[in-house]
Computed example of a mutant assay.
Amino acid sequence: MPTALITGITGQDGLYLAELLLEKGYAVHGVIRGQNNPKRELVERLLPDVHLHNGDLTDMSSLLRALRDSDPDEVYNLGAVSFVAYSWENAHLTTDVTAKGVLTMLEAVRLHTGDDPGRVRFYQASSSEMFGKVQETPQHERTLLWPRSPYGVSKVFGHYMTINYRESYGMHASSGILFNHESPRRGPEFVTRKISRAVARISLGLQDELVMGNLDAERDWGFAGDYVEAMWLMLQQPQGDDFVIATGQTHSIRDFLDLAFGHVGIADWTPYVRQDPQFMRPAEVDRLVGDASKAREVLGWKPRVSFPELVALMVDADLEATQQGW
């Protein structure tokens, strides 16, 4: 039975990845920050077979303990301060966790493996936000990185540190440059879930308006459940490498609004949506679209859930949750 250790297991990707690995017969361990973490109950309810370890990406000793106690074959570093807007307000914390936390995890794995650095395979959750002010379209593994937020800058640090540990120490270390991926498990602070929740509530007469920022930003959106499979596939390769994971299609916030409101029978959403400058980014990333040719050719990976299916899935889940009073 292979064993995996996941940081960030309480997040959207961590939950889907843990489910996938359990289905594949893995013993799954998760690092969870804080003794009274409010999301601990969620993990224990959804994934009772997962073994949880208290740990923090800013604390080397706690990561070494988690590695010692789990003795994993694979480590998936998904933990981060992942809300882009928050990163401007807390740039230092974002840097400590999302950037330096990758170094701490890599070094912990290196120390744990000793003279056999390839014994533990390592996955780093890189991000399309690293491309920021895009220098070419679509973006691929060799596209120049130009991040436009403290979050993006932190992800670039972690990305290159993963490459450096692979090249310096012979670690089996891979980075997945994941473009935007969503699901009903996405946090309500993220724009896609903000929309799906508001649409559900508006359709049920529980909310009057949705306040938004930039409606013209364009993203390459996929389903998180599809993307975690790509993470696993990367660590099954003979050597570590970097892969863009994306659908290759781009849609605007307006497109998302069209589909979400249309799904509940509202053809014209303009009376319900208001823009507010406070939700605008200080430095906007206007358009992201990924070229996942390498992932298709090397990993045999491709997305299964389409953009309209994803939007419908999220709205339906929030309709059910709202009606049930969750």
Rank of each mutant, 00 (worst) to 15 (best):
M1I: 15
A4G: 04
D13N: 08
L17W: 04
L20G: 07
L20S: 11
E23W: 09
G25M: 12
A27W: 01
I32V: 15
K39L: 15
V43G: 05
L46W: 09
L47S: 03
V50I: 04
H51R: 14
D56Q: 05
T58M: 07
S61M: 09
S62W: 00
R65V: 11
L67R: 03
D71H: 06
D71W: 04
P72R: 01
Y76H: 03
Y76I: 01
Y76V: 02
N77A: 14
L78S: 02
S82T: 03
S82R: 01
F83V: 03
A85I: 02
A85Y: 06
W88R: 02
A91Y: 03
H92K: 09
T94E: 00
T95K: 00
T98K: 01
G101S: 09
T104I: 09
E107L: 10
V109L: 07
R110M: 06
H112D: 04
T113N: 09
G114C: 12
D116A: 12
G118A: 14
G118T: 08
R119E: 14
Y123M: 11
Y123T: 01
Y123N: 08
S128E: 14
K133A: 15
E136I: 03
P138W: 10
P138K: 12
R142K: 14
T143A: 08
L144N: 07
L145K: 06
P147T: 00
Y151Q: 00
S154Y: 00
S154H: 00
K155N: 05
V156C: 11
G158S: 12
H159I: 03
Y160D: 08
T162Y: 04
N164D: 11
N164H: 14
E167Q: 13
Y169D: 11
G170V: 13
H172D: 08
A173Y: 14
N180R: 13
N180C: 11
G187T: 02
E189H: 10
F190C: 04
V191K: 01
R193V: 00
K194V: 04
K194E: 10
I195V: 15
I195T: 10
I195A: 06
S196F: 08
A200M: 04
L206T: 07
E209A: 10
N214P: 07
L215D: 05
D216L: 09
E218V: 14
F223Q: 14
F223T: 10
A224Y: 00
A224E: 01
M231Y: 09
Q236T: 12
Q239M: 13
D242Y: 06
D242L: 09
G248V: 14
Q249Y: 15
I253T: 08
F256S: 04
A260G: 13
V264R: 04
I266D: 01
I266K: 02
A267W: 11
A267C: 10
V273W: 06
R274F: 06
R274K: 15
R274L: 11
Q278M: 14
Q278N: 11
F279M: 10
V285P: 00
D286Y: 11
R287N: 05
K294R: 15
A295E: 08
A295D: 07
R296D: 05
E297D: 13
V298A: 07
L299C: 06
W301I: 09
E309D: 12
L310K: 06
V311H: 05
A312K: 15
L313F: 10
A317M: 04
G325P: 04
W326S: 15
W326D: 15
W326T: 13
